[in-house]
Amino acid sequence: MQMSLPQPEPNADSLPYWQAAREGRLLVRRCTACGERHFMPRHLCPSCWSDRLEWVESEGTGRVESYSIVHRAPTAAFAAVAPYVIALIDLDEGPRVFANVVGDDAFEVAIGDRVRVTFEDRGNGAMIPQFARVKR
């Protein structure tokens, strides 16, 4: 049986993020009081607790801070695509995100690699941010 990879399940904090992703745009939260940008969208700014937040579009470029090649997947759906790369990526605007590194050269990933966002189709219009290494 072919198991499909999971789709995003937005909540009230993240709905605009996932809606933008469907259009191929990567959003982060920005605090209009202190200027801090954060990822994992919240109701208030985790730096200053202001609730005056806005959504801003990220350039989608960043750097790999760490990664792992996963061989023993947590679910049957991911086992079907293993091995795959998970990574923590610092966007150039500041926030750190978690995603897969994808592409033909994904297994050559190293800490410090430049990466750029790309969007993966998870079906029914759901697109999720992923990252690919920037070719030198």
Binding site: P8, E9, N11, M40, V70, R72, F98, I128
Partner: peptide, 13 residues
């Protein structure tokens, strides 16, 4: 649930 499980995240990872 939204930002890690979606990418096949796991504790050993």
């Amino acid at each position: 649930p939204q930002f890690e499980q979606l990418y096949g995240g796991l504790i050993p990872g």
